[in-house]
Design a protein around this nucleic acid. Structure first.
Lengths: 234, 234
DNA sequence: TTCATTTCCGTTGTCGACAAAAAAAATACA
DNA sequence: TGTATTTTTTTTGTCGACAACGGAAATGAA
């Protein structure tokens, strides 16, 4: 709520303002620092970032394009609510994209792709060891995003990245209340996936991607049901 | 290039300007009335629509979000080029979405969905009979979009619609130079797909969706190779 | 008090203007 | 004549201001 730029007016490069606001707001939304349903005020943001409403507005339009905020005409714009009814559909799409991207990575990856994938896997492994749930979510997403990039299909990549963004919000919602220790199993499955990709074993990559996705869905399903039980008993 | 509103200033409802510009520009881009790579001038559009640059700009930001235009910082914004190198990736994604959406429609459709699907099929059939290539493209997309809607997965639906939009541009590019008579076979395949959906035969829907998609890809492939031959011989 | 009407207020949508950036044109220099 | 440098032009990015819209508060009638 405080100004980003108190005191003197910092010079900003022309055109950088929109990206600044967009990136920060996007992160705040996906990290649930901005609660779903909460209102977004343009003038407030303008003061906070020390700029006019125009670039703020452009950033908001972009976020609305990704469905991260909803804008009632002539009325307040607000952070989109998480669509719980749509979760089955979401997981269906997510698992399919896990499969497809992993399979394509096995088919079309190059040597340099594997290096990048391994870097992300190392970071994910460290996050699991540190039991840092938030970091796990981020590094896991980066890991699979790298795999999708290795598959060399821009359409799948774009779609998958959008799904992972949405998922970041859902996962964070649950992991912040229940800091469950995420199974070491995910790390091992990642290793298997890397091996299948490297061996260019398409069938194995497909199978592992599917299993890995369903594994995650199942994990979240457990969290959800436990959540329900708690709600009923209190 | 002429003003939309010559003479007197027509009253527009507050907030409707952006949608107006967005819809029209989107259509012009997808219908190839605006050539890929051609420059887009904001002031020119402002004059044409009789409004300020601000709403124009917002429409452009949205179009950029969908990848229909590209905006060089501080420099001209232009209609995105069609990515020919990415066509295999595109068709791969398209066929997959044909499969998935048809399959889900068989699984989750309701009675009212079939009515809508049939309406689009009737329109498509009429377009084929009239040998109106442009109308075929539009009605075919609407037909499959309706099937995707019946599948009740907002994520697939959104992704598929975006793919169909892109495809509209590619298809139009070829059908406008070679007004090939599109096979009656597509109409029949559509009928088979409808029957499979109505019978809730998931396996058949999956198979038909895949075959239908591959059929279209193959058709385009033929057009492309013929195009290449011509280029070489001239 | 309760409900309908009016007034006020906060927020968005749109506008015209100006400054910055980059290309294009013009000039200077060899 | 060809190249480097300056100037002009064109187009974008940002700003402050104002009107319109919708809700909230205030007012009035029963």
């Amino acid at each position: 709520m405080t100004d980003i730029d108190p005191g003197q007016t910092t010079e900003r490069k022309r055109g950088s303002g929109v990206k600044l606001v967009y990136d920060l707001l996007r992160d705040e939304i996906l990290d649930l620092k901005l609660e779903p349903g909460s209102a977004i005020d343009e003038v407030q943001l303008a003061n906070r970032f020390g700029m006019s409403r125009t670039p703020i507005r452009e950033a908001l339009v972009r976020l609305a394009g990704e469905g991260l905020i909803e804008t009632l005409p002539n009325r307040s714009t607000m952070v989109s609510n998480i669509d719980f009814l749509g979760m089955p559909a979401y997981f269906d799409a997510l698992v399919l994209m896990y499969r497809v991207t992993t399979r394509l990575a096995a088919q079309y990856h190059r040597a340099e792709d594997l290096k990048i994938i391994r870097v992300h896997q190392t970071e994910f492994s460290a996050a699991v060891a540190a039991q840092d749930a938030l970091e796990m979510i981020a590094t896991n997403a980066a890991f699979h995003s790298a795999i999708a990039a290795a598959g060399r299909n821009a359409y799948y990549f774009g779609f998958f990245d959008r799904l992972l963004g949405e998922g970041r919000r859902m996962l964070r919602l649950y992991y912040q209340s229940y800091d469950d220790r995420l199974p070491q199993r995910f790390v091992e499955e990642h290793e298997e996936i890397i091996a299948a990709i490297e061996a260019r074993d398409i069938a194995a990559a497909d199978r592992l991607g599917k299993a890995h996705g369903e594994q995650i869905v199942e994990q979240i399903g457990r969290l959800l049901t436990r959540n329900d039980r708690l709600d009923l008993e209190l």
